[in-house]
Write a protein that binds this DNA or RNA. Structure first.
Length: 274
DNA sequence: AGTGCGACCCGAACGC
DNA sequence: TGCGTTCGGGTCGCAC
């Protein structure tokens, strides 16, 4: 599923392919993908805009247009592909941006969970979904003191808190398990009970894991197969996620799977003791 | 304010 | 084989 490294990879690939292209039409086959503004307004505003640049904030892909940002969240299965206008439409292609050169950017999403928003440039950082986001993993302000202040009232298990995008952005279910394994922290440990050393490990391993995953082009796992030119190789480097009953790479104890906050969670009960 | 949980979706995996 | 059921995953909104 697209977490920060997947979105970063999609952004970089799309930048090599669609920069400066002009949108001459938009076809919307599943209207609920468009969250804001209303579909008609979305269409009329985006037509004749060019793709000036592409950015990322957390798991949001940000297409910079002349006057707007198109914010796109892939959720679990959203993908982008570039195709010729003559190619047949796939049943999971819900939004199609037609360019002036007979090519199209197609948004494909089997589960239909992904969302798009079109926001005037100067209002972008006041837009609710971006405004409430926490720090990027590589932000210098991400320190032990920052985490301590954010975690001090959190009775929830650290696994759940790592997924909270209002504290650190970009971590999803897969990388949360990897980060905790590398930090030798039990996923059920209450966030507010972590020591300063453990918080430092979380910071270091968050940066390390995400950086390595970006280098590998993200993780292609289960249903998340590929976007345009994106075939993540990081799954080959996963240590515990999805490895139920397989030996721990550190101590050979079988990896166990539990539910934490409703999410499948993999860990080594020997290496990650309470 | 913090927490828990259903809703949103549908293909894949599982159980019989 | 076929059919029904369960699962998963990010985020929001609502109840407590």
């Amino acid at each position: 599923m697209p977490e920060l490294p997947e979105v970063e990879t999609v952004k970089e690939v799309l930048k090599t392919k669609i920069l400066n292209k002009k949108i001459v039409d938009v076809k919307i086959f599943y209207e609920k993908t468009i969250e804001y503004p209303k579909v008609d307004e979305f269409k009329s505003k985006i037509i004749n805009q060019q793709i000036v640049n592409i950015h990322r904030r957390g798991k949001w892909l940000m297409f910079e247009l002349n006057d707007y940002y198109l914010l796109s969240h892939l959720r679990m299965e959203g993908k982008y592909n570039i195709k010729k206008t003559t190619e047949a439409l796939d049943k999971h292609e819900h939004v199609v941006f037609v360019f002036d050169d007979k090519e199209e950017l197609r948004y494909r999403d089997t589960r239909k969970f992904g969302k798009m928003n079109l926001v005037i440039k100067k209002e972008i950082y006041d837009f609710p979904v971006l405004k409430k986001l926490g720090l990027e993993p590589d932000d210098d302000n991400l320190t032990v003191d920052y985490l301590k202040s954010k975690y001090k009232k959190k009775n929830l298990p650290i696994k759940s808190v790592l997924l909270d995008q209002q504290i650190i952005v970009g971590i999803g279910n897969i990388y949360a398990d990897e980060i905790l394994f590398l930090s030798k922290i039990n996923p059920l440990k209450q966030a507010k009970k972590l020591t300063k050393q453990q918080l430092q490990l979380i910071i270091d391993n968050t940066r390390g894991v995400l950086k390595r995953a970006i280098k590998a082009g993200g993780t292609t796992i289960r249903s998340y197969t590929s976007s345009e030119g994106v075939h993540g190789r990081f799954q080959q480097e996963l240590l515990v996620h999805g490895k139920e009953n397989e030996p721990c790479p550190q101590c050979n104890t079988p990896i166990i799977k539990i539910k934490v906050g409703g999410r499948g969670t993999y860990y080594c009960k020997n290496c990650q003791k309470m």
